[in-house]
Structure formats: structure tokens, C-alpha cells
Amino acid sequence: MMIAYDVDYYNPTTIEEATQLFHRLVEEGKKPVYYAGGTEIITLARSERLDLDAIINIKSIHECLLAYSDENEITLGAALSLTQVIKTNFFPLLNQTIAQIADQTSRNQITLGGNICGDIFYREAALPFLITESKAVIANRTGIKEYPFKSIFNQKLQLSNEDLLVQLKVKKNEVNFPFYTVKKRKQWDVGYPLITVAAVKKKEQLKVAFSGLCNFPFHDVNIDKRINDPSLTAKERLDGVLNALSSPVLSDVHGSMDYRHFVLKNLLQEVVDAFKGAKT
């Protein structure tokens, strides 16, 4: 019932300390990881699917735990647990999307940043940020920078080894657009998605992001175009989306590729129906 690896453990309190430490450990030939909720790191390490020998806990870093809303934007620290994020109630689409991740007790541990940066490829917490004007605040030993979320997220957050995701920010007016999010599972009400979608309607156009359809989450404007075309039937819409996909649809323990096509077709219809009459 143990993890075989021996690891060093650090609990820095500032971004600077954390990033310098990470750099130093790499220089020393170590394999450090930034650690927040730990749920994924512990499960992967236990089953030898992740190699590490140093843990840098970021849950004592003030900036990573901030949650506030100012005039222009909402800021959410990467080390906030999903439960804490939900309690802020700042970003309803995000709330509803992450409320479907794992289960309630696990959401007390899983963090916003951990879900987005995880190896487990669903990363559903990224979906709302992909379809809104959002930013990722990223630190390394050279300093702290903000990047448009979309520009830096391609299948996963394009971090260099030493980068630390500190915060997520979203433009305040973006959180008021009509939205819809739904998670389809193989069966029952807890667990990984067969397909999860998050969608917003902005200037009469739907923007839809997916998880579980391919082995990474994504938002694709070409797919939005098909979904937004009112002349298409459900079947045509599905074909359009499948044709626009850059990667094959998954076939795994949750469902075969063919079945995912079937679920996707219904799901696209459900999304379109959900926005009927919604004004933006």
C-alpha cells in the first residue's frame, strides 16, 4: 500500500522561492514536480506511472490561493481546490463544469491548476477558459507573465519544465454570457467523461469546447462554424464536426469510437437546443 519512490519535500511560501528551488533541483539532476492537490501525483506514483524524486508543494504560496473579483477580471489561484472555486461562485460555467469532476470528497483535494496541468488528459477545468477571454498567469525564475489562455493551451498547457501555473483570470463580462455544460459518462454519475462539453453563446455564436472526445481537451473554431450553421441537420452537424477534427476520436474503456460518434450527435443537438432563445 505504499509508494516506492523516495522523495524530497519542499513547502515554499513565495513564487520566487518555488521557482528558484525548482531550477536548482533540475540543475542537481533531480526530477521535481510542482504539487498542489496531489490526487493525480499520488495515484500515478503509486502505480509507477510517474517518475519523481522531489515534491514542491505550492499550497503555501499566497498568490496560488487567491480568489477575487475586481472591476475587470476574476482571478483564481491555481492551488484552490475545486470545492473552493465552486464556493466563490465567480464563474458559473466553470463551477458547473468542475462540479462534475471526480466526486465531492475528491473535489476537496483536486485543484484548479492541478486539473488543468494534469497528465490525465481530460483536464475538464480548462474548457471554460478555452471559450472565454481568459489568461494564465505563469511564473518561472525569470519572472511572472500573463498569457492569453488560448494562446498557451494546445491539448495541454504549453509550459516549459520549470513553469509554474499561478493563477487563471477571466474577463468579468465573459462570465455573464449564456452557457451550457454537460458531461456524458459511460454510465452512472461519477467518473471520467465519455464526452464533456462546455459552451457559451456570445454575439449569437456558440463556442464549444470538448473533453473526452479525443485524448486532449480542445476548442476549435472550425467546429464552432458547423455547430452554428442553422441549416444543418443533426447528422450533417456531426459529420461536419468529425471532418473538422484534427485527431481521431477516442476508442477506450469508456466507449468505442462509433459509440462516441453516436453520443456526440445527440450531444450537439442537446447543446444547440439548450441555447434556443438565449439572447446574447
Binding site: M1, Y9, N11, G37, G38, T39, I42, T43, R46, I55, N57, K59, T83, A102, D103, Q104, T105, S106, N108, Q109
Partner: peptide
């Protein structure tokens, strides 16, 4: 211990007022 994977909840404890799966938390935390 039931799964050591955060799946079964048999190891649930309370930490600072919140339910936590103790198989998914390091002691040092």
C-alpha cells in the same frame, strides 16, 4: 484502505472541517 486511488472513500477523514480521502494526501501536508 480500499483502493489507495481515491475511488472508494473508505479512508475518509476530516481535516480542518472538510472530508478528505487520506489515501490521496501526504502525511507531511
Amino acid at each position: 484502505p480500499g483502493c489507495l486511488n481515491g475511488d472508494c472513500g473508505a479512508c475518509t477523514v476530516n481535516i480542518n472541517g472538510e472530508a478528505i480521502k487520506s489515501c490521496l494526501m501526504l502525511t507531511v501536508e
